[in-house]
Amino acid sequence: MVNPPNLAETLATFHSDLNRIQTVAGTLSQIERQHYTDLTRYEDEKLSSIAVAEQSSARQLGEVKQICIAMAQKIDEIQHSMGKK
């Protein structure tokens, strides 16, 4: 028989994973932004179109980072309320 997972431990794992995803998203976003800067140095239409895609990707990774922050805060709140009980 499989034991039901401990909720407090599961939340702690999720919290840790979210922090990791947030860090990765932030780093990747920064790299994508740098790619945009690098690629726009060349006056090449193809490279410029890749640069625009990189810039948009950087913003979307920024969004992922914000989502992770919001989720981690939510988990904090749940953990806090569980601690009170």
Binding site: S29, Q30, R33, G62, A70
Partner: peptide
């Protein structure tokens, strides 16, 4: 610094 453009 990347400018945050996301919104909920």
């Amino acid at each position: 610094v990347g400018i945050n453009t996301s919104v909920r």
